[in-house]
Design a protein around this nucleic acid. Structure first.
Lengths: 262, 262
DNA sequence: CGCCACTTTGAATTAGCTCAAATTCCGTGG
DNA sequence: CCACGGAATTTGAGCTAATTCAAAGTGGCG
């Protein structure tokens, strides 16, 4: 476990806790609402812009580091990864995107995209010209809010990723990754008992800041402890009998000693 | 070094490289422009809103996890940290903020702030009601752009943080942290040859995903190798003879073997 | 001036990495 | 439909970077 600095937060701690709880607890009703909200948002965008669509397949680039910025993208279906590239050749998966998510915000600041956006499966991307969106925003407060909420979510999610990488053990990080993936599906009305990872162990490891071997070992340990099961054939399909158990495991793995994986 | 997945980016690689280069190279002229741009932005905001100001001191909370969202904050002076809290009590420094930066974007998505924003020194914060900003945005494209650019920057910066933590060794991470801090000062027209860290080793370690001892050792190694010097008295003040040398060290530490710190 | 928080440094331990080999999977072409 | 080959995965063994634990040193502030 890594160090946690002691930062003064004496006041309103109880308030904090209950608010933080809101980050986590995921139930059926919430998922339905989330799914409906995503559908509504897509409908709103469709009504406003009737945007051109692009079908993509695994490996297709939506946009690329250094490319001139001009479009934002909204994902109607599919699974996508965002890959940061550094000068010295490092590649880092910094985000995963699903139906209803936006792509391209990183390009606004410098009129160039600062990462690659890559499809991990067949999907449909809606293309919105940023200029057009801005114009519409000025007239449609609802749209402006939608846009800001999307950016705000991305900021909050990125921070959670950093916290994961900085504070969790490898096993917990993998468990948390699966929980996040399942939860992302749940919020979009998809089943979560059986999920198909669209990423290799190497990609997962890259995203989580560990080697592919460590990912493999962590998955094996989770399976040995019944937190997940592999489908008979193919190790890309993973059964998650109870998503809550993964969250619980992450929590448990923070406790000083005692009950961890075998 | 951690794994880097092989992701297909065969096309336009040269384009990528030069674009990625733009992320890094920092020169005098660029800093002057950046500093001027920040001043202009602050002036614009002041003209539009004449926002109420708040003087803060080290340790003061600007806002707190769970608190109802209503304001955005613009930093006129000072140094600030953003701290993510998790249900289970983990604390993670997820961002550092300086003059011209905004605080509070994380609150837009769920009408509650999802982290704490804390002053690390004396400073002045401008308080903007989000409603008011939205109204003004609808009439002032320039303001809307300003806001989006600020959010976009934050997204891009968060990704860079994640990449640092995931791909760099402890020594390189500390060096990169110092480089980032110095560069942030440079972009605001402040001197960078002698900087004062406003964070304890524990806080730096938390931010970088390592223990305070590792931070201390890394700083000692950097000093031993003349990349930095400690002021005669007090280990909070650090001299950086040549910021570029830090970037070069980070780069060098990525090379398979050879020349690393002693 | 003395306390307390922060920092440094050392020694021992360990989580996760590297290297290596065996196995499984999947797409392709016969 | 099946055989083949390359890519992905698993697992083991040894190693190393970073952690933990401990103790001494230092500095700022009341």
């Amino acid at each position: 476990m890594l160090s946690t600095t002691d930062i003064d937060t004496s006041t309103e701690v109880a308030h904090n806790i209950s608010a933080a709880a809101a980050k986590l607890s995921i139930d059926e009703a919430m998922c339905q609402r989330a799914s409906q909200a995503i559908a509504n948002n897509l409908q709103l965008l469709n009504g406003l812009f009737a945007p051109p669509r692009r079908m993509v397949h695994a490996g297709d680039l939506i946009y690329q580091t250094g490319e001139h910025f001009g479009n934002l993208y909204v994902l109607n279906s599919g699974f996508f990864k965002v890959v940061n590239l550094s000068l010295d050749g490092r590649e880092q998966v910094v985000g995963l995107k699903f139906r209803g998510d936006w792509l391209g915000f990183d390009g606004i600041a410098n009129s160039r995209y600062t990462c690659d956006a890559v499809a991990m499966d067949t999907g449909e991307v809606w293309i919105l010209r940023y200029d057009t969106v801005l114009d519409a925003c000025a007239r449609q407060p609802e749209l402006m809010n939608l846009l800001h909420v999307a950016m705000s979510r991305e900021i909050a999610r990125d921070r959670d990723s950093l916290m994961s990488v900085c504070t969790l053990s490898a096993d917990a990080r993998v468990a948390d990754f699966l929980r996040y993936w399942a939860e992302s599906l749940a919020r979009r009305g998809m089943r979560t008992d059986q999920i198909t990872l669209r990423m290799t162990r190497a990609e997962i490891g890259n995203y989580l800041g560990m080697t592919l071997e460590t990912v493999s070992r962590a998955l094996s340990r989770l399976a040995r402890n019944q937190l997940i099961h592999f489908a008979e054939k193919g190790r890309r399909d993973i059964q998650i009998p109870h998503v809550g158990a993964l969250a619980e495991f992450v929590h448990r793995s923070l406790a000083p000693a005692a009950t961890v994986l075998q």
